[in-house]
């Protein structure tokens, strides 16, 4: 296990290095005066020149890169060109917000998707099977921004069940901020005993989470169904049946365990997918997470933020894949 983890860590570092180089190089190679952007539209040439020296933009690109990496290792991610705030601070605030809805969405997609797929396989070729297949296909075919807008239209405008946007109601904002323990809003509110706050946040998070969960739900439901059906054709299932093992045990214990491996893989993929989808969902729901921030930074070519976000996304991607691989190893001892 240990050498495997070390290899993974090395791979992660390598990937991050390449990513940072690419993003850094890309944003520096593009037309657009960074210093001018930093100082603003109405700046005088001397101010721009001063900013250029300050930001170290007069040095060659590779020197800039090395200086950046040096600062990075000390935890200094630079200053945002757009907001003039330290990137690291913004990151610390916004990342947990997005992770919260992404993880919730992942949880829901498994909690609903896996049973759906299993039941569909157990009752194959019945109406349940067709229904699950239809739902799964539909979930995967819905463009996420369309779903988000649709949910807003139906659940806010027509039914009035959920709020339009944001993370907490404006009234709540006047309260004292929560003690930041985990920075996961729901958990912090629970720990502080402030259930009203927690309920309000959950109420706001509901529609964004549903939007994010749709695609993974469809993927998990369809994949677990087909994987399970394939597994049930295996020799060892027939052999166990011939030895007198009962149908339910055969399906839910013998079969299911073997079918989980591809489902776990797709969950790893879904993680990356959902992180990218937060760009759209947070925009539409005005949710102050990392996706919202990323989109604004992309359009303003705010390269310190861009590099930081790329690093974070890349790291999360590899970490979640590593966790998935560990889980797969635990489920299926054949994987080395």
């Amino acid at each position: 296990m240990l050498p495997f983890l070390i290899r993974r860590l090395a791979g992660l570092v390598f990937l991050l290095l390449i990513l940072t180089m690419l993003v850094f190089g890309l944003s520096r190679a593009l037309p657009g005066d960074v210093a001018a952007m930093y100082v603003g539209l109405k700046a005088k040439p001397e101010q721009i020149q001063k900013a250029r020296l300050e930001l170290g933009l007069d040095k060659p690109v590779h020197v800039q890169y090395l200086r950046y990496m040096g600062r990075l290792l000390k935890g200094d991610l630079g200053i945002s060109l757009r907001t003039h705030r330290p990137v690291a601070r913004d990151l610390k605030e916004k990342l947990p917000l997005s992770l919260e809805i992404v993880l919730l969405a992942l949880l829901i997609s498994i909690a609903l998707g896996l049973p759906m797929g299993v039941v569909a396989a157990f009752k194959r070729d019945t109406w349940i099977d067709s229904a699950v297949n239809m739902i799964g296909s539909a979930a995967v075919s819905l463009p996420i921004f369309f779903l988000a807008l649709l949910l807003q239209l139906v659940f806010f405008n027509w039914l009035g069940w959920f709020p339009l946007q944001g993370r907490i109601s404006t009234m709540m904002e006047f309260r004292d901020p929560l003690p930041a323990v985990t920075r996961f809003g729901l958990i912090d509110a629970l720990l502080a005993g402030d259930l009203e706050y927690m309920a309000d946040m959950a109420w706001h998070m509901f529609l964004p989470v549903v939007s994010l969960a749709s695609i993974p739900l469809g993927l998990v439901a369809r994949l677990s169904r087909s994987s399970l059906l394939e597994v049930m054709q295996a020799d060892y299932i027939m052999a166990a049946r011939a030895s007198g093992v009962g149908e339910t045990v055969l399906f839910f214990r013998y079969g299911l365990r073997n079918a989980l491996s591809p489902v776990l893989s797709i969950m790893g993929l879904s993680m990356a997918l959902m992180l990218l989808n937060t760009f759209y969902v947070e925009q539409i729901f005005n949710y102050p997470g990392i996706g919202y921030w990323a989109l604004a930074s992309i359009f303003s070519l705010d390269y310190p933020v861009l590099v930081a976000i790329t690093l974070v996304l890349g790291a999360i991607y590899v970490l979640s894949n590593t966790i998935i691989d560990v889980l797969r190893r635990w489920v299926d001892p054949r994987i080395k």
Partner: peptide, 19 residues
């Protein structure tokens, strides 16, 4: 099955649950 009448198959390793 398994008690009065039983069966073994051609590919023994594939007949055992791998997990």
């Amino acid at each position: 099955l398994g008690r009065r009448i039983s069966m073994i198959f051609q590919n023994p390793i594939a007949s055992i649950n791998p997990v």
